[in-house]
C-alpha cells in the first residue's frame, strides 16, 4: 500500500471546505467511535412521527439526554428511536441564583418515569457521580392521579385513612436523582427516576431542593409543572411452561411481561406444597439481540394465596440500569437458567 501513498500523495484535487458543525461531528465520532449505527430510515420515521404530533424534535436529543440509561452507553444514539417512542420533549428552564436548570425531556412507559435535566452554573468539582436521595425534593400530580399512586403503594389503606394522611401521601418523595457529568463537553446533567404507574396523561410537578451530591449541593428550589403521557410498550407472553433451575422448586410459568425497564413473571409451584421465597431467587438478566443485558437493581416477589391455600407468585426484575427494547428480548434468566420466551405465545 505504501507504493500507492507515494503515487497519490502529490496529486492535487478539489476539496470543498467543511462547515463547522460537520467538522465538530466528525471530531466527536473520532473521539467516540461507534460500534453500531442507527439506520437513517428508522430515525427519519421517528422524527416524522413526533413532528406530526406537534412536538419539535431535534434529532439525537433523547439519546443525549438519557445517555446514561441507553442500551449501550458507548453508542447512545443507537437507542434514539426507542427513546423517542417513550419520550416527551419538555424544555422548561428556571434560574435560582447562579444555577439554571432545564427540564429537557421525560421517558414514561407507564411503569417508570425518567426526567433529564441539564444544569448550568454548577462547579461539579466535588460532586459524586452517583444516585442521591433528596428528602426536600418531590414529584406530585393531580389529586385523582396521586390517589391512584397511593392506592397502588398502600393497598391495605382505607379511603378514610388516605384522606387523613393526605398531606403526607400527596407527593412522591425519595426520588432517585443521579448526577451525570459529561467530561468531554463539560455539561452537568441530573437524571430523576421514579416508579410511577399510570395509563393516562398526567400533569406533574417536580420540585427539586437541597440536593446534596457529595461535596456539592444544589439548593434551589426549582419547580417544573409539565404534562406527560405514558407510552406503554409491554410485551405480554402467555403459556404453560414448566421451568427448573438448580435448587429452585419446579415452577409453572403462565405469563411473562416485558417492559423497557422491568420484567415480571407469573408462576405457581408444580408441587403445591412447595414454597418459594425471594431469597431463593437471584437477580436475573435478559437476553436481547443475542447478548446478555440489563441486570436489575433489585427484584421483588408478590404472592397471593387463596382460601384453598393455592399461591400465585409474581417475580419482578427492575428497574434495569439500562433501557431494553422489550421487543428484542428472547429470554429471561432465573438463577442460572434461561427461560426462553419462544415457548410462550406473544399476545397482540
Amino acid at each position: 500500500m505504501k507504493d500507492w501513498y507515494a503515487l497519490v500523495n502529490d496529486l492535487e484535487t478539489t476539496v470543498p471546505p467543511l462547515d463547522e458543525m460537520t467538522q465538530k461531528r466528525i471530531l466527536r465520532r473520532v473521539v467516540r467511535p461507534k460500534k453500531r449505527r442507527l439506520t437513517l430510515v428508522a430515525l427519519i420515521a421517528a422524527v416524522m412521527m413526533l413532528t406530526a404530533c406537534g412536538v419539535a424534535v431535534v434529532t439525537g436529543q433523547f439519546s443525549h439526554w438519557f445517555r446514561s440509561i441507553s442500551e449501550d452507553v458507548q453508542t447512545p444514539e443507537a437507542s434514539q428511536t426507542l427513546f423517542e417512542e417513550l419520550g416527551t420533549v419538555i424544555g422548561q428552564s428556571e434560574t435560582v441564583g447562579d444555577i439554571t436548570m432545564t427540564l429537557d425531556g421525560a421517558l414514561w412507559d407507564g411503569e417508570y418515569l425518567f426526567l433529564s435535566l441539564s444544569v448550568e452554573g454548577l462547579d461539579g468539582e466535588g460532586a459524586f457521580m452517583d444516585k442521591f436521595t433528596s428528602l426536600d425534593s418531590w414529584l406530585t400530580g393531580s389529586k385523582a392521579f396521586m390517589y391512584g399512586q397511593v392506592r397502588e403503594a398502600y393497598p391495605h389503606m382505607t379511603d378514610e385513612e388516605i384522606e387523613a394522611y393526605w398531606g403526607v401521601l400527596a407527593s412522591l418523595r425519595r426520588l432517585g436523582i443521579t448526577y451525570i457529568p459529561d467530561w468531554e463537553t463539560g455539561e452537568h446533567r441530573l437524571l430523576v427516576q421514579q416508579e410511577l404507574g399510570g395509563q393516562e396523561e398526567a400533569e406533574l410537578t417536580l420540585h427539586l431542593e437541597h440536593i446534596e451530591m457529595g461535596k456539592e449541593t444544589i439548593e434551589g428550589p426549582f419547580e417544573f409543572t409539565f404534562t406527560v403521557s405514558p407510552k406503554p410498550m409491554t410485551q405480554v407472553y402467555t403459556g404453560d411452561v414448566v421451568f427448573e433451575s438448580g435448587s429452585l422448586p419446579a415452577i409453572r410459568v403462565t405469563e411473562v411481561r416485558m417492559d423497557p425497564f422491568e420484567a415480571e413473571i407469573d408462576f405457581t409451584t408444580v408441587d403445591e406444597t412447595a414454597e418459594i421465597r425471594l431469597k431463593d431467587i437471584e437477580t436475573g438478566a435478559l437476553m436481547a439481540r443475542g447478548e446478555e443485558t440489563a441486570s436489575a437493581n433489585n427484584s421483588g416477589l408478590r404472592t397471593v394465596t387463596d382460601a384453598a391455600g393455592h399461591t400465585d407468585y409474581t417475580l419482578s426484575y427492575g428497574p434495569f440500569r439500562q433501557i431494553v427494547d422489550p421487543r428484542t428480548v428472547t429470554a429471561v434468566k432465573i438463577n442460572d437458567t434461561w427461560l426462553e420466551l419462544h415457548q410462550f405465545t406473544l399476545q397482540e
Partner: peptide, 23 residues
C-alpha cells in the same frame, strides 16, 4: 480515516501522510 492515522502513526511515513489519507 483519522482514527486509522492515530492507530498507524508508528508505521506511516509522514512524507506521504496525504497519500495515506486518500487511499
Amino acid at each position: 480515516t483519522i482514527i486509522a492515522i492515530w492507530k498507524n502513526g508508528d508505521k506511516i511515513d509522514p512524507e506521504t501522510l496525504r497519500g495515506f489519507v486518500i487511499t
